[in-house]
Structure formats: C-alpha cells, structure tokens
Design a protein around this nucleic acid. Structure first.
Ligand SMILES: NC(=O)c1ccc[n+]([C@@H]2O[C@H](COP(=O)([O-])OP(=O)(O)OC[C@H]3O[C@@H](n4cnc5c(N)ncnc54)[C@H](O)[C@@H]3O)[C@@H](O)[C@H]2O)c1
Ligand SMILES: NC(=O)c1ccc[n+]([C@@H]2O[C@H](COP(=O)([O-])OP(=O)(O)OC[C@H]3O[C@@H](n4cnc5c(N)ncnc54)[C@H](O)[C@@H]3O)[C@@H](O)[C@H]2O)c1
Lengths: 215, 215
DNA sequence: GATTTATTGTTCAAAAAATCACAATAACTA
DNA sequence: TAGTTATTGTGATTTTTTGAACAATAAATC
C-alpha cells in the first residue's frame, strides 16, 4: 500500500509544490501537479486520498497546507542527519553538493579507511577514520547512511554500519547486500541506469518511442 | 511488454552471470540467478521466456551461451560511447569511475561552459567547450548523453543535446525535462533516493520492515 | 537401458497498480 | 440567491506485474 513508488511520488509532489510556492502560486489543482510530476491527475488524487489529504471541491488544494501535510507525512519537519562511508568520487560529490540541505538532509560526516582522505577543516564536512563511526552515530542519533565504497568492501561496511546502529542505507555499490538485522536498503546503480538508456536507444527506435521518461 | 523493470532485471542477470563466470562456474539454475538478483526463480524463467532464451530441463543454463544471448538482446556486443555535459561534482565522479568500461560503456568526452574545467591532458577524458558538442557527437556517432549541470541549466542543455543528435539521456538534474523530439530520458534523483530511505526509516519501524530492499 | 530426480517452460491465478468514471459539492456567475 | 461549472474523492474496472503450479523432459543414477 505505502510502497516505494507511492512515496517517491509524494516526494515529487512536494518538490513541485515548493517550486510553485516560490513562484507565488497559492493553490493548485490535481492536474497541475500531475503535469509537473508526469503522472495522471487521478493518480495524484488517489495518492492524496490514501494519506487522507483532502482539498476543496472545485477549489483545488491550498499549496501551503498541502506542503505542511506532505512534510508531516514524509517526516520532513526536522532535519535528518546522514553519514557517508567512503570519501572517494561519489562520496566527495555528495559532500560538495548543496542541494541536500535545502531538502532538510544534513550530511553530518564521512568515514573512510584511507588517512589521505581525512579532513578536519572548519566549514567542511569532516572525513573521519572508520573506527569513529560507531561513537559518532550514537552521539548524533544517526539512523541513515550512504555506502560509497568499492563493491568488494560494501558488504563488510554494511555490517559495520548496522552494528553501529544505522538502520537505513543508500547503497551505490553495484552488488546485492545481505543484511541480517532489520534495515532498509535502497540501491542506486548508476551503470545500470545508463545501460537502461542504452538499451532503449538501441532497441527502442522501431517501436516509436516518443520522448518517453523511463524513470 | 519490454518495460524498464524487465530490462533492468536482464541487466542484473547479466551482471550476476559475469560474477559467476569469473568465479569459474559453467552453468547456473534459475534459482541461483533469482537469489543473486533478489527475485523469484519464476520471474527469471518468465523473463527469459519472454526473450526466447531457453536452457536445458534439469540442466539449467550454460553461463557462456546465456551471456551471449543477453548481450545480444541488450546490445552489449559493441562498446557504447557516451558524452557528459557538466564537469562538476557528479560529472567528475563519473569520469573518474573505472566501472563503466568493464560494462562496455565508454565516456568519450565531457562538455562544459566553464573554461576552468577544460582539460586536454593525454590519458584523461577530454573536457571541452560546449560549442564543440555537436561536431563531436556527429563525428563519433554518439547517441547517449548524461546531463550533470545545475537544474536551472538542464532544460536548455537538453535542447542543445537533442539538437546535436543525442537520443538518450541520463539526467541527474532534479527537474522534469520537456522534450519535443523523440528521445528517451532516464532520471536519477539522488536527493529523492535518500529521502525515500529516510521515509521508510521514520515511518517504517512500526510496520516491521525486515531487511527490505526497496530498490 | 530403465528409473528416478531436478529443473525448465508455460499456463493460470493472485496481487498490485493505474485508470476510469461519476456523484458530491464548493466556488464562481449573474 | 439560484443556477452553472469545475474539481475533488472514491468505488469500480482495467491493466500490469508477480507468483504458484505442474506437465514435460533432460540429466543423473543404478
Ligand atoms: N564514481 C562513480 O561515478 C560510480 C558510478 C557507478 C557506481 N559507483 C560505485 O560507487 C561506489 C564508490 O565509487 P567511487 O568511484 O566513489 O569509488 P572510490 O574508489 O573513488 O572511493 C571509494 C572510497 O572508499 C574508501 N574505502 C575503501 N574501503 C573502505 C572501507 N572498508 N571502509 C571505509 N572506506 C573504504 C576508499 O578509501 C575510497 O576513498 C563503488 O561501489 C562504485 O562501484 C561509482
Ligand atoms: N553532486 C551531487 O551529489 C548531486 C546530488 C543530487 C543531485 N545532483 C544534481 O546533479 C547535477 C549536477 O550537480 P553537481 O553537484 O555536479 O553540480 P556542479 O555545480 O558541481 O557542476 C555543474 C557543472 O555544470 C557546468 N555548467 C553549468 N551550466 C552549464 C551549461 N549551460 N552547459 C554546460 N555546462 C554547464 C558548470 O560549469 C559545472 O561544471 C545538478 O542538477 C544537481 O542538482 C547532484
């Protein structure tokens, strides 16, 4: 019922509403949102209905209250702190990115085994030895972590993170992780994402793909 | 019929087979693959059946021939060349990553508007002025491109890439792109991926999530 | 070579997701 | 204020996706 796809749609609605809000709009209709996110208006209303969000018949939805409700549902009222393990290419890109804070996500620290990566510069996100992960996570009550280490190290790192108390994982390593304890793992496989595009370009031309968003 | 999810599964089977192959295995059963990829054995056989792939009853599948068939279906027999537009955090991370070549994906060049990013060093992937995109794409017959520019620039960059002849896009900018001509767009929204994990950690604890891969 | 066994390929059923359709009704209009 | 209109909220329907079941059968065994 509350599956991943549905949550992702809610998050997208929220983003679209942010934009509309900052453009000065006050209310919105289901089909505006549908357009902005790329779904049908029915889908928007069904999703809202599922979470008990209601608007005004004929009047649409008040953007401000809608945002409040979505933020409440999505737990976006307080900033969420996150750690990264692996300060290489991907880890560094994530640390340098300013877009997380705007969405209420704070990258609290990064952990690595390579001393060359350690960094305590004021203002930067600290990059610390992996051994400090457990203490850090406990001290800051962190439940979410990103895995950005090479695939061969990923399983071991996962186990270590779970032992430290991490419950939710965003995993960039292209392997299927095994977890004993209860946790949530979301995998991002960038090679796969690119290969998917390649497939549809090679094999999709004859089947008249017109400007299709495949994800 | 041949939807994105199915293609992604095929790509995952292919990856799993690669691993098994390099471990010295010669044949594989549907439930091995299912395990490796996180689906049911029925699903594996159904997917293969859909593409006319068949193994031997009681004998499973010959890994080598299976890989050949998958590579043929997925168009992975020749190396695919790709360009990146935007040599910032994400663009640079992608360029430094060695994992694409192994999967037959070659990042041919990157394009940027910031002269500080230009790079002609022998051995490195070249970073060139955006104006050179069209010629480069034509000369190298490139059909796939990655968008790794700030969201405000993304639509304009897309239009430029399509005009240059690019047909397939992997887009990292967190906006919904509009495309007039026929093309395929695959969106990767990393903030969303992280927010999804956060949602399931905040709201999922009571509903007894056990070690669930949500993507 | 006959018998047993394990695994495929496919059909059918179930579950999940998306879409349709429309009554209910709040907001506009005159 | 009465009438009209546009939009919601949701039950019904369709489509898509997944899983279970099992006959067919190739490999293994004896
Ligand atoms: N960079 C990309 O564009 C890209 C693309 C697709 C997939 N990936 C995947 O993302 C992951 C990270 O890729 P990357 O390019 O950033 O790799 P990288 O090699 O640049 O960085 C990995 C970092 O992890 C650290 N590390 C290694 N073992 C560790 C351990 N046991 N504990 C803590 N830290 C450890 C290393 O010191 C290094 O800093 C990999 O699994 C890769 O396959 C990356
Ligand atoms: N870095 C991350 O971890 C991260 C996370 C989530 C989303 N994203 C998204 O990915 C995209 C890239 O992020 P980033 O952190 O790499 O950004 P960045 O600012 O580091 O890099 C952007 C690059 O694009 C170039 N550029 C700007 N306008 C251009 C144009 N019109 N044509 C060509 N090049 C242009 C800039 O010169 C710069 O080199 C953004 O849309 C961002 O929202 C990034």
């Amino acid at each position: 019922m509350v599956n991943k796809k549905c949550i992702i749609r809610l998050l997208r609605y929220k983003n679209a509403l942010h934009r509309l809000n900052s453009l000065g709009f006050v209310r919105v209709f289901s089909d505006n949102l549908a357009d902005a996110v790329g779904v049908t208006a029915s889908q928007v209303r069904k999703d809202f209905s599922l979470f008990g969000i209601c608007g005004n018949k004929r009047g649409g939805y008040q953007i401000e209250t809608l945002l409040e409700k979505l933020n409440h549902i999505l737990g976006k009222n307080e900033q969420q702190k996150v750690v990264i393990v692996g300060g290489g290419n991907i880890g560094a890109a994530l640390m340098k990115y300013k877009g997380f804070e705007k969405e209420g996500v704070k990258i609290a620290a990064c952990f690595d085994i390579d001393p060359a990566k350690y960094n305590h510069r004021e203002g930067d996100i600290p990059v610390l030895p992996l051994e400090q992960l457990k203490d850090f996570v406990r001290q800051h009550h962190i439940r979410i972590g990103v895995i950005a280490v090479p695939d061969i190290a990923a399983q071991q790192v996962l186990d270590f993170m779970l032992a430290a108390g991490i419950k939710g994982i965003l995993n960039f390593a292209p392997i299927r992780l095994r977890a004993a304890s209860d946790c949530v793992i979301n995998n991002v496989n960038l090679v796969l994402e690119l290969e998917t595009v390649i497939y549809f370009i090679i094999n999709g031309t004859e089947s008249s793909i017109n400007n299709r968003h495949i994800g």
